[in-house]
Design a protein around this nucleic acid. Structure first.
Lengths: 254, 254
DNA sequence: CCAAAAGTGTTTCAGATACACCCATGG
DNA sequence: CCATGGGTGTATCTGAAACACTTTTGG
């Protein structure tokens, strides 16, 4: 449980160096084991989870702040980030209940932290490269399957929903495959990824045909061995052609 | 030119009732005479133009604030608004030059107004319904053709660019026709609108065929008379089917 | 040898594109 | 009567969807 001392130090620090009333929250998305995952933090001494987020330094751009926050949480240093929405409902921080769930105590003057507007980012990361680490206010940082995410603090459940919706509708213009898959991947990997995001099955032959026709991937001699059953070929993206397909919005697939 | 008194009153007012460091700017888009137009304000006693914008009351959601700001500028009271991006570069308000262009004088302590983060909205409105009116700090409020928009204050030129790009890439999911055209319109009106946004000519027969196939419009008995040449039929949108086509993203048209 | 995933081509259909002429209207 | 934009149908092509069997591998 957070002590009053810890909480006060945290907010004093933020008030001094950061923009007032503005924060950011990141929906970090990874893909593993045919599932989309999202990175969540658990608040000290509680069972309450929230998105990784933070404040913006007075001399820092919001994009840079998001990078900084995520570098600390994931150990990665050049993360694909996309700002997707601002959450500015007057009520989003109004409820005392949320602060109590976090294990925060009231400020000495009997009030709770004031209304904050939050800028939402989604990050697309290679699951395998991330080393999740909690911060001073949280006990744990780990991946959750999208389908099993618990009820989050504040409006974070809503923020996750909006992020996923945005990802779906912008599938054609976002580097989903490029950023979520490792350097080398198999055609079934890529297909599972699209199926998961779109929420429906795709035809194997048509999928392979379309991806090949776009020329965004190159097949390697290598195969992935060690799994059960027939060993699939490995592929990697052709950086140039992938970028071009994104510009033209031809990676929507349906 | 704005006096120090006026400026001070304005910022004192804002500081007292509004969220600090946060503003919003609106790219109000209309369509007239085969051209997209944007609504701009001219600052008192200067030739400098900017987007209509404002601050967010402490108890108000950002969306509500945008509605409020635009109601005052356009005379409309239920405007289609879409939040599309947050502009949070640390440098966007840094340059004294911008404040000087606006005709603002330095604050008494020798500083300029501090960094502000701005939430960008685009509004789609029926050109004919708008009654542009300036506010206390501006002399004039009027439509500009997109192609002839002058160099705007701060990063507003950039904001307009981002708004138009967003409009183009989200064409399939935004109620562009429904909101930009009047109640009754002709097929050529609708086609010109799409051509303008997409930046290319479309085939008349194919366009009419596709729109009809989607069933989003209904042809009226009435024709538009008074123009030169053959009188075109009038149409109106089928509200239900239009909404459905938007949900399915089938109004992209190529 | 069996179970399960990987890999591969052809046919069919729908939607997109290309294309040209007559009509109505105001000046 | 003429200049200009409005209105309409068909043939063709391209890309999407439907569809099944053989191969490989570990257990």
């Amino acid at each position: 449980m957070l002590t009053r001392i810890e909480m006060e130090a945290y907010f004093r620090e933020a008030a001094e160096h950061c923009l007032p009333g503005l924060s950011l929250d990141c929906v970090v998305i990874g893909f593993h084991d045919t599932q989309l995952k999202v990175l969540l933090l658990r608040w000290k001494g509680t069972d309450e989870w929230s998105l990784p987020g933070g404040f913006i330094l007075k001399t820092e751009s919001i994009d840079a702040a998001a990078q900084r926050v995520l570098t600390e949480r994931t150990g990665l240093d050049s993360i694909f980030l996309h700002q997707f929405h601002v959450f500015g409902e007057a009520s989003r921080y109004d409820e005392e209940q949320n602060w109590q769930r976090m294990g925060l105590v009231m400020k000495p003057d009997g009030t709770w932290p004031a209304r904050t507007v939050s800028v939402g980012y989604f990050a697309l990361v290679d699951f395998a490269q991330v080393k999740p680490s909690p911060d001073a206010l949280t006990d744990e940082c780990r991946w959750w399957e999208i389908a099993t995410v618990p009820d989050l603090l504040f409006d974070h459940t809503h923020i996750v929903e909006v992020a996923l919706n945005t990802l779906r509708t912008q599938l054609a213009w976002q580097p989903v495959g490029y950023k979520l898959l490792p350097e080398k991947f198999t055609m079934p990997d890529l297909q599972r990824l699209y199926e998961t995001i779109l929420g429906r099955k795709l035809d194997t032959r048509n999928f392979a045909k379309k991806i090949s026709a776009l020329g965004v991937v190159e097949r390697l001699e290598e195969r992935r061995t060690g799994g059960a059953f027939k060993s699939p070929y490995l592929y990697h993206f052709d950086r140039e052609r992938y970028a071009q397909a994104l510009r033209e919005g031809s990676l929507g697939l349906g």
